[in-house]
Structure formats: C-alpha cells, structure tokens
Design a protein around this nucleic acid. Sequence first.
RNA 1: GCGCCUGUAGCUCAGCUGGAUAGAGUGUCGCCCUCCGAAGGCGAAGGUCACAGGUUCGAAUCCUGUCAGGCGCGCCA
Length: 608
Amino acid sequence: MNLFRDVKADLDRTVETLIAEGVLPEGLDLSRVTVEPPRDASHGDMATNAAMLLSKPAGMKPRDLAEKLAEALTGHDRIATAEVAGPGFINLRLAATAWHDVLRAILDLGTAYGDSDIGARRKVNVEYVSANPTGPLHIGHARGAVVGDALSGLLLKAGYDVCKEYWVNDAGSQIDSLGWAVYWRYLEILDPKKFAITDEAAIKSFMAAMGAPDRELEYRGEYLIPVAQALFEEKGDALAVKGADGFEGKPVDEWLPPIRLFAVDKMLDLIKDDLKVLGIDQDVFTSERWIIETHVDRIVAWLKDRDLIYRGILEPPKGQKPDDWEPREQTLFRATQFGDDVDRPLQKSDGSWTYFASDIAYHWNKHERGYDRQINIWGADHGGYVKRMQAAVTAASEGKAALTVKLCQMVRLMDKGEPMKMSKRAGNFVTLRDLVDAVGKDVVRFYLLTRKPDAPLDFDLTAVKEQSRDNMVFYVHYAHARGHSVFRMAGEQVPDLDVSDAALAAADLNLLSEESEQAVLRLLSEWPRVIEAAAEAEEPHRIAYYLYDLASAFHGWWSKGKEDTALRFIQADDPAVTLARLALVKAVRIVIASGLAVFGVEPVEELT
RNA sequence: GCGCCUGUAGCUCAGCUGGAUAGAGUGUCGCCCUCCGAAGGCGAAGGUCACAGGUUCGAAUCCUGUCAGGCGCGCCA
C-alpha cells in the first residue's frame, strides 16, 4: 500500500491515454515525473510536476498541457479534483475513500505497512563498526554502529537482501602491540613490582632486552588485566622464564604468536558484548588474517595479470613535504586508472602486505559472495581512503561492484552544554557501555540518528533525557505512549466500547473530518515513500525527522481537545466518533512503532 | 599545494536528489492555560540559504571559481 505510487500510476495511465489519443507524442520519459505532497497543505493533497517536465517534448506550453492532464485525471476514482496552479503544477485533491483505504491498510498490515519492494531482494552488504580488536568500543564507534545498523534496517524494510558485516583487523602491527600489552600484564601478574605498568624505565629496559628498543607499550587500559589473568590460568608461568633475579621475558617468537591469537579472541568477545548492549547483532565477521591467508595472493596475481600493479616511485605530496622523504621504489596499484589521485602501495618494505592490499582482497571477497552493492560506514578521519577503495572495488570486480562509503563525523560528548573532558591516559574516556548505562540503549540509538552522519554531533548526557519538545527522542516516544494511554483511558471511560482490531477496522471513517485529523492521516500516507526515499538516499536520519513530524501532528491533534472538548478522542456519548478516532490513533502507534523498528528502538507504552 | 566533508533564522538543525511564499525546535517579544486527558496552546518578529558567476520555465539543491572551518595526504589500520 503506497498511496503516492497508486496516484502516480493513475497519472501514468492518463499520459498513456493521451498518447493513444494523439494529444501527446510517443516515447515520453516519465521517470522524472513525481507525485509529491505539496509544501503548502492549502494546495491540496498531492502535486505533480508532469506538465512542466513534459511540455518541451510534447511541444506544448506547460499550463496548456496541465489543463489537459488535469481534465483527464479527474476521471480516476481516487482523484476528486485536479487544478492547475503556478507555473504548471497540477494540484490534486483525493477522494475521501482513498484516505480511508490508507487507514484500513495500516490497521491491517501493522508494522509491515511501509515495507517496500524497491529493493527487489537485491543483495547489499553493509559493513560497519569494524573497530580494531584491541579494546572496548567507545562513543566514537557508537555512531558508526548505530548508523550502519539503522541503514541495514532501512534497506531491509525497503526490500533488499541485507548482510550486516564486521571486518576484523586481526592482523598487522596494532595486533602486535596488543600482544605486547597483554604480555606485560601477564608478567605483571607474575611479578607486580618488577613489571609495574606505571614504571616507564622498567618498560623501556624490558623493550631493549627483548630486542625492540623503539617499541612503545600501548593499550594500557585495565580491560587487559582479565585477559592476562585468563592467559595465566591457561598457561601458568610457561610463557616466562624464572631466573635468579625473578621472572624474565622469553624470546618474542615464543609468546607473541599465541598471545596475539588469544588476545584477539578475547577482544572480539568483548566487542561483541558491547555491540549486544547496543542491540546490534551482525551476520558476518570476516577475519583479515583469513583474508591474507586465502585471498590476497590470488587477487594480487589477478591484478598483476591485467597490468594494474607495477613497481614504481611516488612523487612527494606537493606543499607539504615530510622531513624524512626519500624516493623509494614500491609495489603500487594503478588506482589513478579508476579515479584516485595517486597510485597506492600494496607492500611494506619488509615484504608484507599493506592494509590496503588485504582490504582489496576483502572487498573482492564480498564481490565473490555476490555483493555488488557494498556500503561501508567509516569515521571521517578515513575520508582520504575512500577513493582508493572505490577504485579497487571497481578494478577487482571489473566494474560490476560499486562501493559507497558513509563517513561519520565526530561525536562530542557533552553535559549540560559543556564538553566533557576525556583522556585515554587518565582512563576516564567514555566507553560505549558507560554511555548505554547512563542513558539507555534506545536513547543512544535514536539520538545518534537525529543528525545526518556527515555533520558533527553533540551528545549531551543531560539534554537527551529531558522531557520536552526539543528532545526528538522523548517527543516521539511520548507520542507512542500517549497513543497507548488513550486506549487505556477508553477502557476506563467507555468500558463497553469494543476497541478490538476488528471493531476499529469497521469504524465509520467518514467521521474523521477535522483538519488536524486529516493532517495526521496525510502524514501516515507518506510513510512508504519516506522509506523508499530514505533507502535510496541511504539516509536513515530522515526517518527520525519523519517520526518527529508525525509525533508533532499527533500531539497537535490531541491538543485540540484541550480547547474544545468535542474534539477529544473519547466521546462517551458518541461511540462511532470515538471508534473512528481510535482507529487513527492506533494507526499512528503502528507507524511510529514501525519507524522505531527500523532504528532498532523499542516503542514504549508508558513513559517513566 | 591537492582531495573529501561542512557553511541555511541569535543558537542547534531539517529541507523529500531541480519546484510554488525556504521550515522546525530553542531563544526573544505578546497573549492564553495555571488545566489534569502528565510534562503546554496560539501568535509575532527574526533569512542576500558564506560570496560571485553560470546552466533553465524554475537553484539552498546541479556546474565553475573564491572565502571560512573540519578531516586526510608514501611502507598506521
């Protein structure tokens, strides 16, 4: 059920009829013709730009064509009046029955109302979070997580076959650093004095003794203590040697490989728990280690066969010269052939693959799995990486796959309008889990979706819990809760009234004649096209604004009853009117619940 | 120096992929409600859509250039 699509179909048929009658020429392109809600409700229910778009190919003046179309359009059942306005708009007013059909469809379909088939079950891969498995998720990850999850929900509702994916960077130098950090915590358990994490001198001399004098000890957070503890319980002191002077470290090769595996495993568990707290459950976790073992060599050879890889020397970036620049021959991918600014290195000087190489292989793997539409959600600091990745996807799929990247800007954590000071070193940086504990998963999810991702966002711990109109999260929840409270009140005030789904479906909807009721119904009719537009634009935040608009219209309608008791939803002496209004209230509840479901947010029946 | 993102009311932000008189919240000002159907209602003021060109029936939206802010710029992921 999509009223706008139905009316567009009426319009298309009208144009075809006029073509058959010779009024319009054949071969008109109707794809850009729209049927939309007008900006101003006084213009009518819907407006179309058809006459303005078709006037040129039809060889007619826009207003003349509009007159012809308007006349023909009034022949359809759904269309009550069609008037020409402005430069050639055709404003439509719909028959009352058209609106009633919408309302009944909502009651019948429930939260499936708004489901679309524009996706046609096409496969889409949405990759998000993909944080390095080196620690718990923090607030910076939360936005990408929520945006990716909501976009997935949106595409699912729009009829796509969606795969929600996490790319696990379980290889590379950061995982080495994690291994070292866990080893230090492990040694700390064996001898807390000798291996204190605060003893910079001890750390430095230890690194030197291990043959890695330049290595810094990263990841000093306490979350690694239980990991080291678990390691100790599994291995005892076998990963260290006991000398005359207490415990000493073993040669790196003996402990680093097993500890890396152990630590990544534990970190991934930690991250999955964090995601669970946010209500996120991704379908596929792909390991970089596995991709390197099974895919990189193959795709590199494949690209080499096509002369897309060569040995060469890059020019230094103009304007900004790194001090230590020296010309260096490296293995390069011809990214410039696919729209990137420079060719990009695939191998480090020690011969191992760069992250880019494994990422190429990974995206190629997605293509092999049938995902030719790929969406990645990244932090804005990775913006410089977008073009090369798109170039690589195009190259490795021979142009069959396309990647879009959504960049999420920073989230500033605030309290009462003041930025909160966070520092990793001091250990008071806010984890995702802290955030959820503080305000709840649904508030976090919804609030992070109230702004388009490419704009920075302030997350104010106090403001998000305020119960006022300027808090979108509250206002939408309140509308849904109010919808339930109306039904609770109906049960008290008119206990004999049958408000079952069947009774609501049979209500006399002609009794919904108030302007504020029509306004609500008009918005409800837009829900399917909001879903489709948001899905095509890949912009879940539009759902938040729609829900806010719907909540506003609903609260506005409710408020009418304050001025005039005859407009209150429940009229004890008029069951027919009450039932019709309750039917509309129920429909509002359904659509809000349907929208919140896209966001993975639970609708509430009562405010707390 | 180059690339990407951003620039809309005092403030925080929408603006349906090019449509009609650019919207909402907040703040300011004025009225109402002081209610119990829970956390408010009505109205006013407030704009050179950063700036300058261009495309066309029509531009906040598309193109070019300029300015300002953010991010990034050869073996980190």
